[in-house]
């Protein structure tokens, strides 16, 4: 399988505190990778490093290499905005813009220079269909997105991320603020999306990792303890710490 992201010896410091230690990890294309581990273990930090959202935090220092399709994302000539177009992100709390459903989806394409109304109409429809929410809100495209339910808002945010045609989708605990029914809808959606996209998701929910992911990475205190097929990690972990965590002995 093609590896779309290759991480080599990644270290990250917030000021003097080291948040990631010597992380090595290769992520295969069109799979779902779950990042698990107790709070503060560095999994969200790792996720945000992949689209360089950590750049926005003062006093962050990074060493090591991340290759996206063979290109070093920290290289001087990399356009961060194009990188973020390629590697989209869905946040923990649904965060639609306080504007209409249509404008939410069209925001990304407009940012990247698409002005034709017909093209935007197509993109909005296709993105909402891909995010499995078109049928629910096709009659409310002009309504403010903040009026949708939490689960709908999160799928809208996924649609918004899809509208700029990314290759990779980063998800930071996308279901932790949602009810069980909305959660299962998002999980189903992820399974459909991996046909076209590579998904990397942070989750606190062990069952969710088992249900949807192909690969699992277990982080502890900034270290990548174990990375491999989800099935193997959860049935026969190589590391004692992984076993202790997934069996609920700590975390």
């Amino acid at each position: 399988m093609n590896e779309i992201i290759k991480v080599t010896d990644l270290n990250l410091w917030y000021g003097a505190a080291q948040a990631l230690r010597h992380v090595n990890l290769n992520i295969p294309e069109k799979t779902i990778t779950a990042l698990i581990g107790p709070s503060g273990c560095g999994k969200s930090t790792f996720l945000k490093t992949l689209n360089r959202m950590n750049d926005l935090i003062p006093n962050v220092r990074i060493s090591g290499e991340i290759l996206y399709k063979g290109q070093d994302i920290f290289a001087r000539d990399v356009d961060v905005n194009l990188l973020r177009k390629e590697i989209g992100m869905v946040f923990q709390k649904p965060n639609p813009f306080p504007m209409s459903v249509y404008d939410n989806i069209a925001y990304g394409p407009r940012t990247h220079g698409i002005k034709s109304r017909a093209r935007l109409d197509d993109i909005v429809e296709q993105s909402l269909k891909d995010a499995a929410i078109w049928d629910e809100i096709k009659n409310r495209l002009k309504k403010n997105a903040l009026g949708l339910s939490g689960g709908q808002q999160q799928r809208l945010c996924i649609a918004r991320a899809l509208a700029v045609e990314p290759q990779v989708l980063l998800m930071d605990e996308p279901t932790s603020a949602l009810d069980p029914i909305s959660t299962s809808k998002i999980e189903e959606l992820c399974m459909q999306l991996k046909e076209k996209y590579t998904i990397i998701t942070v989750t606190h929910n062990m069952q969710q990792a088992v249900r949807i992911s192909d690969k699992t990475a277990f982080f502890l205190l900034g270290e990548l303890v174990e990375f491999g097929d989800t099935e193997k990690i959860f049935s026969n972990p190589a590391d004692k710490r992984t076993e202790d965590y997934i069996t609920g002995r700590f975390g």
């Binding site: 959202m53 905005n81 946040f91 813009f97 925001y107 940012t111 991320a161 700029v164």
Partner: peptide, 14 residues
């Protein structure tokens, strides 16, 4: 809210 701005930046807006 910071989340609005994060969402925009994550879509590749400057």
């Amino acid at each position: 809210p910071r989340e609005y701005e994060d969402a925009s930046l994550a879509l590749g807006a400057t």
